[in-house]
Design a protein around this nucleic acid. Sequence first.
DNA 1: AACACAATGTTAGGTTTTCTAACATGCAAA
DNA 2: TTTGCATGTTAGAAAACCTAACATTGTGTT
Lengths: 127, 127
Amino acid sequence: MNKEIRKTMPLLPISIVMQLTDLTARQIRYYEEHELIVPARTEGNRRMFSLNDVDDLLEIKDLLEQGINMAGIKKVFEMKNEPLVTKQLKKEITDEDLRRILREEMRQAQSMQKTSIRHGDLSRFFS
Amino acid sequence: MNKEIRKTMPLLPISIVMQLTDLTARQIRYYEEHELIVPARTEGNRRMFSLNDVDDLLEIKDLLEQGINMAGIKKVFEMKNEPLVTKQLKKEITDEDLRRILREEMRQAQSMQKTSIRHGDLSRFFS
DNA sequence: AACACAATGTTAGGTTTTCTAACATGCAAA
DNA sequence: TTTGCATGTTAGAAAACCTAACATTGTGTT
């Protein structure tokens, strides 16, 4: 009986996610349409969301309030999965560039720590 | 925006609870009928379960497999909320009784610790 | 053996929730 | 002013859930 509840397990119906995020069903489906989230589906085609999905939705909401559009948010999400260094390596950069990039990445990591306390982190919700 | 996700928040529809506990809807509703759990309801009268409810259901399942019936399980649940000492005090016991009871309670607390690792504790599910 | 009861299965009919798809609206940028 | 993005609204269909009733299974009792 090797069960495990992970933040990635699809547990929540859309009604609950609406309450948790203060988004409308229309908004949530629209963001899925733009592939910012990919909720699981039941056999009967109902969406089921994980806590990570809720997390992502809260971040989307925040970025939208900052005036960023779907395309921008999609790019932001891509960057989260593929760190700066990786992308730059693909471009065959010089050592000089690399040093600049690493400095920049450290700077970003710092500011992310600050903001992650306020935005898009479900952990703060748990007692 | 003082939100908080607690183990007591009703987030899960019955279908998910069925998967999590390997119980049928009939069983879950039957246990509610006997007031072993009291899931929340949506405006439209659908049951919504908290993680604590799932926890309780797993414990119910375990106790049932041990041959304990509804009445017995209900008593076990009452005891969890009202520790032995409290109940005995109501009966105006002698000091001699009290000493016996405290010894017994410690014994039970020990065995509870052992079994709680295996049964009725959702925390083991989280990554 | 016959019975009684507890726990669960099954079915029927009705209601709520969610789905997709289409069209409407508000607003900002070109 | 026209365009396009984000969201609202509506309609019709399907899935999920509800209660209530009756059926089945297993177990203990007389």
